[in-house]
């Protein structure tokens, strides 16, 4: 499953971004990285992305603003928030805005990957259902399910 996930990491802290991408790639994930919320939106407009790992504190568009914009334009994309600055209020706001999860730095890379997989599964289920509904609405009757 890991190989089919298209992941985007957004973090202004370059060291962190690069290390994380390297480690995720080693585990077979297709991962891209950008340094700001603006770049993230640009990337999402250009390429199919399943899951976004998003830093909360960034100069320019911050994490919450970016999350809002992502959810507005790409509602199916799942977003995992990541922060080095724990804050109860932001966490809840993020979750209410539709973040899949809210994680604290530093986190275990494997834990993060599990979260990514879960988020991906959620997105897949969601998409499959939409496709099915469309088919039903169109009156299609073919069946791949036995």
């Amino acid at each position: 499953m890991i190989e089919s996930i298209k992941l985007l990491v957004v973090d202004d802290e370059l060291d962190f971004l690069e290390t994380l991408m390297k480690r995720l790639r080693k585990r077979g994930v297709h991962v891209q990285g950008v340094k700001s919320g603006e770049e993230a939106l640009e990337c999402l407009g250009r390429e199919p992305i399943d899951v976004v790992i998003l830093d909360v504190k960034m100069p320019g568009m911050d994490g919450l603003e970016t999350l809002k914009a992502i959810k507005a334009k790409h509602p199916l994309v799942e977003v995992i928030m990541l922060t080095g600055h724990a804050n109860v209020e932001t966490a809840v706001t993020g979750m209410e805005l539709g973040a899949f999860d809210y994680l604290m730095k530093p986190m275990d890379i494997d834990e993060l990957l599990y979260k990514v997989q879960d988020a991906y599964q959620k997105k897949m289920l969601h998409e499959t259902r939409i496709a099915l509904r469309r088919k039903i609405a169109e009156g299609g009757n073919e069946d791949e399910d036995k």
Binding site: T128, R129, L132, I136, D143
Partner: peptide, 21 residues
């Protein structure tokens, strides 16, 4: 607007999806 019984298979599929979700 969904038809009730003519889409059994899709519905079974949907049901299974629901279950997975």
């Amino acid at each position: 607007s969904d038809g009730p019984s003519s889409h059994n298979f899709q519905n079974i599929k949907e049901l299974r999806l629901t279950f997975q979700s």
